[in-house]
Design a protein around this nucleic acid. Sequence first.
DNA 1: TTAACTTCCGACCGATCGGTTGCTATATTT
DNA 2: AAATATAGCAACCGATCGGTCGGAAGTTAA
Lengths: 207, 207
Amino acid sequence: MSPRKSAAESRRTRDRIIDRSIAIASVEGLDGLTIGRLATDLGMSKAGVLGHFGTKETLQLASLDGASAIFSRAVWEPAAGTARGLARLRAVCEYWITYLEREHGAFPGGCFFTTAAVEFDARVGPIRDAVVRRSLLWRRRLANEIRYAVNAGELPPDTDPDQLVFELIGLYTGLNQAIQLFADPQAQDRTRRALTRLLAPAPEGAR
Amino acid sequence: MSPRKSAAESRRTRDRIIDRSIAIASVEGLDGLTIGRLATDLGMSKAGVLGHFGTKETLQLASLDGASAIFSRAVWEPAAGTARGLARLRAVCEYWITYLEREHGAFPGGCFFTTAAVEFDARVGPIRDAVVRRSLLWRRRLANEIRYAVNAGELPPDTDPDQLVFELIGLYTGLNQAIQLFADPQAQDRTRRALTRLLAPAPEGAR
DNA sequence: TTAACTTCCGACCGATCGGTTGCTATATTT
DNA sequence: AAATATAGCAACCGATCGGTCGGAAGTTAA
């Protein structure tokens, strides 16, 4: 009807597109996301949507970026104020649970990255690469925090950071499944129970 | 070209379709599976493929059934000969690792059910229902075996079977990701390390 | 006040989607 | 041998896919 086009307006439109794109993709997958559906949802034309990105793939990558920011804001940043080491690790894990919750969670269709990772884990291309990069970044952040906690004597000195990261990732993937597939109300508690074992403090007298 | 049509021949064709369908869906997802691609791969016409099932959804459900049989044959049946309880549980877990392996695993694109579960965990409909049913069945089987092991005194008496199932599912989802997304050669060992803790026998003197 | 640029739309493109129809060739039943 | 049933094909259906194009409306820079 009436094209609006100040620079600020344009950026707001772009953000609206990405927000909606993330919401759709968290349910239908990044591939199930279609330009037509997006345009209808936003009351725009397909050309208007695509004009901001040029290509569906670019839009998908931008959505990944956007989802990344949401994850960071929901899980990492709130814990940044907590003291480094085990305390921050525990805070991160608690925010991570909230982030995955069905009602108050960040995404309507469950963790965006779990969906994207499974969707693209057997394909090749830039999207898979981007997913891998993001995942590795997160794993590295976790491992760093764990290493710090070990060095501070808060976790047992024989802790293998990568092993712990491996088990944490699995735990939270399982939590996501329990919430999304079974709507299991106990899932959060089960996760916390597993965490108390995984993040058990080192016995007194270490270091 | 030349229609073949004995009853046995027809069933073999149906099986061929399902086999290929499973292979495709394990990579592209059950939704990414298309009749046209399937027909091309099999050297058939779309109508010839669809004639066996009537509907894409029916084909998807049949593929789920087929994948279920493969899983059972790869993970459950080989362990059926082992003594019930902890021994069988450990056997199942070992076969489960093999089943997920990149080279010798059952599916080219990683665990069919992990893919399907994540793909449909935020949707409604018969496919989601079928996935949920299969998953619950597997969880129940595992829980039963755990319960048996607890009653036999092989696992600590305070073991919560559902909690252990929860952690096992997470562990193997993580293993699938580590294999598919990162091709991590240590993933199997990490899984076994986690298992030795999760399936640690009860201390002597229990029961 | 222009001139250049940008946002967005409507219309359109070839390709592909799931699915239908009419038919032929073969198997099976009678 | 005749009648019936079925597997599979070619051709086609409307819908939708990602994407292109030219122009209209509006902003920004000169």
